[in-house]
Design a protein around this nucleic acid. Structure first.
Lengths: 130, 130
DNA sequence: ATAAGGCTTCCAGCTACTGGAAGGTCAAGG
DNA sequence: CCTTGACCTTCCAGTAGCTGGAAGCCTTAT
């Protein structure tokens, strides 16, 4: 099938599919006209990648996961390790964002939000007290 | 003062300071030798930027905030609006990450993590059921 | 004189795509 | 047969916000 059909079936944009080929995730055949010709297996890999990415796995993690996926003899422990590492990275990001969020929300609550110039948000950013 | 001292006082790497000059946040004077010569005001702006960035404001938001900061007649409502928009973006990111986190944590809990090949994580990624 | 450290510019690269230009290909309609 | 439009191709550039490194000048100390 052509890239448009592969895009529809995998849920990924054609641009992304070309990119995934470029970085070696898939190697679709080429027709006489130079068009890519995707197999069902290619599409399956693309869907695997789409799902992995949507769960926050990096491209590097995806590479590992895909190798494990295609290795019938893998140990689930290896997969779990990658997933746990990703979970930790996600948790770290969430913690960072939560900390930002609290500080920012506090400043917003303090700010009158009217047409006067006095503003605790700017006061904090300007770090006038420290 | 030289860029090294400005870096120390602002808490930003020299590379970042040069970048901030490049994108127009500061315009330090230059000495006869071509070295940048930072004023206390420059450093103050750099600290403002560092604090803003650490609260998750984008460079574009920083531009707006800095303009408001330097405008003595601004309305605090304008500042609050930018902050609220940033808060919303942060909240959206947190929500995305939370959703990922839940799904991933669930899959990890299901996975035995031993040396057998059977793995619910890969099963989900491979999307065998749908 | 020389060595170390700081400063300069410029170019490249990071993540994971995304947009767009220039041009080849294919199927349908007149 | 020709055209139109949708599709495909490659390649280059850009996104956010820096970061690393090379090549080379300046300063200070020995």
């Amino acid at each position: 099938m052509n890239i448009g059909e592969a895009a529809t079936q995998s849920g990924l944009p054609a641009k992304t599919i070309r990119y995934y080929e470029e970085i070696g995730f898939i190697m679709p055949h080429r027709g006489a006209n130079g068009y890519r010709d995707f197999s069902d297996k290619d599409v399956h890999v693309l869907r695997f990648l789409g799902r992995s990415r949507s769960l926050g796995f990096s491209i590097d993690h995806c590479r590992t996961l895909l190798a494990l996926y295609q290795d019938q003899g893998r140990a689930s422990a290896d997969v779990k390790r990658v997933a746990q590492q990703n979970l930790k990275e996600i948790d770290d990001k969430i913690a960072d964002l939560q900390a930002m969020r609290e500080t920012l929300a506090h400043l917003i609550r303090e700010c009158a939000g009217d047409d006067r110039p006095d503003c605790p948000i700017l006061k904090d950013l300007g770090n006038l007290t420290g």
